[in-house]
Amino acid sequence: MKTCLVVDDSKVIRKVARHILETLDFEVREAGDGREALDSCMAATPDVVLLDWNMPVMSGMDFLRALKDSGLPQRPKVVFCTTENGMAYIRAAIEAGADEYVMKPFDRETLESKLQIVGVA
């Protein structure tokens, strides 16, 4: 079973994502900000991280940089999942090392298709 870490400061979004991911047979972990997400990755690397952009403690972009510097032997796939839907944001995220990008709001098909694209579904 693949593991997905859902990183979002909104409990509701985490719940929606968890629900979809569980129907796709993922084991789901949650984090409320980038800091928690990093700790979670250091404890055990998930297969994929679903990553919000704006979060109180450590933003998605800061998390991405920290993950790069973390020295983790195996990097998880990172799928940004955010309401920042402009091309400039998308470009910045991909340049910073994200593998895919989901624009909110999203549905099951979107998430499934993006997870397939990064090779974890």
Binding site: I90, E100, V102, M103, F106, S113, K114, I117
Partner: peptide, 8 residues
């Protein structure tokens, strides 16, 4: 646009 289309 998000169905099946890789972001790149």
């Amino acid at each position: 646009i998000q169905r099946g289309l890789p972001v790149r």
